[in-house]
Nucleic acid binder design. Structure first.
Lengths: 141, 141
DNA sequence: TATAATAGTTAGTTTGATAAAACTATTTAT
DNA sequence: ATAAATAGTTTTATCAAACTAACTATTATA
């Protein structure tokens, strides 16, 4: 059969899937946060000490947008801002213990799903999947 | 190496990927529509003659929300509403030629990406990918 | 030293999506 | 025939997320 057509369907299913994968977060203990907030938290977890400007460039958002979002996370005691000693215009943004807890729960939710996936795939399939995703991701679409 | 950890990363990459896959739509000729609108259009394309209530159940949104969205699409001449003869409370929602054109463009954008993917994968990989995605999708997470 | 550039903030606005509640019109059930 | 249920609409309000523009504070440069 036509591989292209089948792949179209697969991508469709994958879209639905990834949507569920993401919105799962909004059900449990993390439901008080928005996806956007969890996304900021994830980014800060991955790049400890990142600045507002850097986030703004990474996410292609205006500085004002990011500034407000970060100060909101600050208000919620999810992040801290530490002014740089060498350049006082800069602030290093980091996760607080509360922020790290959120990140832990976030990862937990995803890991639970991943366990279910590993359960129904055989090891060879898991390997193929990882390799194929890597290849596609390298495409940079 | 730990398959679970690798799979976590893969799912992460897949998230980024599917995000791009979706937001690609917002660049070309379809940029005048929101993702939400394209989503409604897709649903109506797949279920020609669907009603507001059915959409509301499918998307888990209040009827008022859907009603407004659909009437907006009506205003834009993307959908038509035809009152049922057998039960005049019902309206069958369908795509207009303009709506179908939008759907065509939408599919085209995705197909272009899919061609790129097929190019860098060998046929065996495409097959595996389709099968694996099917398996995961069947999980219903 | 005076001027540019950079980091971040603040104020005000816009847009898109959502919901609750009250409503009309129609159909079903008692 | 009347009451209850259903489909869809309208109004009003809320919210998150984004933007522009003007601002302060700090640093780099000419």
């Amino acid at each position: 059969m036509n591989q292209e057509l089948e792949l179209v369907e697969s991508m469709d299913k994958l879209g639905v899937l990834m949507n569920k994968f993401q919105t799962e977060l909004l059900n449990g203990e993390l439901k008080e946060y928005t996806l956007r907030q969890l996304y900021y938290i994830e980014l800060i977890d991955k790049h400890e000490g990142i600045s507002v400007s850097e986030i703004s460039k990474t996410l292609e958002l205006k500085k004002s947008t990011v500034s407000i979002a970060i100060n909101q996370l600050l208000e919620l005691e999810i992040v801290t801002k530490i002014q740089s000693n060498t350049d006082k215009r800069f602030y290093f943004i980091k996760l607080t213990p509360k922020g790290k807890d959120i990140m832990k729960m976030h990862k937990q939710v995803h890991q639970n799903t991943i366990k279910k996936i590993i359960n129904i795939l055989n090891p060879g399939e898991v390997d193929s999947f990882i390799k194929i995703v890597d290849k596609i991701a390298a495409l940079n679409l």
